[in-house]
């Protein structure tokens, strides 16, 4: 990530609450667990849903814990079904997606990146994504959302991009 962006961020990470979720029947939790541990070691408050959660269970956990960041991990292709359902429940319960950072990680085909962003996802991370790239992006997005910045960034695959570069 751009050094200037990183320099500008003064964030108290232990005030940032991150929910890492495993929606659906997929049991591949290596990435989710490794990321949870990294984020916790990096100072964030991290909650992990555990495996095999329904869309309702994930959304309810995000609501009850009043999280700043919701990260969802899919190695099953079920993101196409779960992401819209989970975001729908959040919105119906009064969550403004401009106030919550939404991340998706896993085997997400490139051609679906835009679809995910259009649904309200801020960052799509693919297998092998460096963990500090994820935490840097969380910090950036928290700040952009808090500041209601007119210049919002997104993360797709391996790249940090601006809204107008989204194709």
């Amino acid at each position: 990530m751009n050094g200037d962006l990183k320099m500008n961020m003064v964030l108290n990470r232990n005030k940032i609450k991150v929910l890492v979720a495993k929606p659906g029947l997929d049991g591949h939790d290596r990435g989710a667990r490794v990321l949870c541990r990294f984020l916790r070691d990096s100072g964030y408050e991290v909650i992990y849903t555990g495996l095999h959660k329904t869309a309702e269970e994930v959304a309810n956990a995000a609501l009850q814990e009043d999280v700043d960041v919701l990260g969802m991990s899919f190695l099953s292709g079920a993101h196409e079904s779960y992401v819209p359902r989970i975001l729908d429940i959040l919105k119906k319960n009064g969550v403004d997606l401009n106030d919550m950072v939404i991340l998706v990680g896993g085997t997400i085909p490139e051609e679906q990146f835009k679809k995910m962003i259009d649904l309200g996802v801020d960052g799509v991370f693919i297998p092998g994504a460096p963990m500090d790239e994820i935490s840097d992006f969380i910090d950036l997005k928290i700040k952009e959302k808090r500041d209601k910045s007119s210049d919002q960034h997104y993360f797709v695959g391996t790249k940090l991009i601006k809204a107008e570069d989204l194709v």
Partner: peptide, 11 residues
């Protein structure tokens, strides 16, 4: 099954 939604024939 409700938990099958989004996963049938997928993986």
């Amino acid at each position: 099954d409700p938990l099958a939604m989004g996963e049938v024939g997928k993986c």
